[in-house]
Nucleic acid binder design. Structure first.
Lengths: 112, 112
DNA sequence: GCAACCTTGACAAGAAATTGTGAAGGTTTG
DNA sequence: CAAACCTTCACAATTTCTTGTCAAGGTTGC
């Protein structure tokens, strides 16, 4: 199946299928003449890519980076370090007062 | 350390630090008055986020989705399915002729 | 209490990604 | 061989993301 029909099948444009390929989201083989040939798997990959973009509200490029996060160990490592740092720091309970509690306290003080 | 100083430390703007927080890239605790309080870890998270954006040439949003790919099992699962489909289909060698080879063959045919 | 900073929210400027379209030419299939 | 499709490339339209800025008000620390 060629790119035009594939696009109709999955509900997008041929242009977008080529763009998705450039981003590494799909990878259809080529015929001897250079035509993209979409098989069953390629169609499902394209359809899934579109569905995930919608489900997670992300761009094609973000989806591609998500794939990289899972496949490239170096990227995965960096991201895990970020994930570890991002979690609220070494501050135990009591380091920062609870916002609402403090606000209520202020209001009480004003009211008295 | 408050957001303004933190921004100067890591070489960005206060606006961007808030945006990064909104995307889930950093998560500084708050003071009783609601001020963001950047500790050592928060500063390093912010700096690392910026560095990874540059290193991988991705947007803050893509970076955030990369984190999700590693942390959210459902997202990870979907992405792995995509990764599996994306690999060149069930076509063994011979299913699609090599492009360059075929082209050379055509040229030879023309030349004869 | 005051200066300097912060908060959220909204709007708008700017940059970048996404998508369309056309040109020049090659492939496929009947 | 001819119609219909494809290729890549480049440019442009669009949309979205990113970033700045302002307003109205609250916090902090001297």
């Amino acid at each position: 199946m060629r790119v035009g029909d594939a696009a109709r099948q999955v509900g997008t444009s041929a242009r977008m299928l080529r763009y998705a390929e450039q981003l590494g989201l799909v990878n259809p083989p080529r015929t001897g003449g250079g035509y993209r040939h979409y098989g069953e798997r390629d169609l499902r990959a394209a359809a899934l890519a579109l569905e995930l973009q919608a489900r997670y509200g992300v761009t094609p490029a973000a989806l591609a980076f998500g794939l990289r996060a899972l496949e490239d160990p170096e990227a995965a490592g960096s991201l895990r370090r970020l994930a570890a740092l991002r979690a609220t720091g070494p501050s135990g309970p009591g380091t920062a007062l609870d916002f609402e509690t403090a606000k209520a306290r202020r209001l009480l003080r004003l009211a008295s």
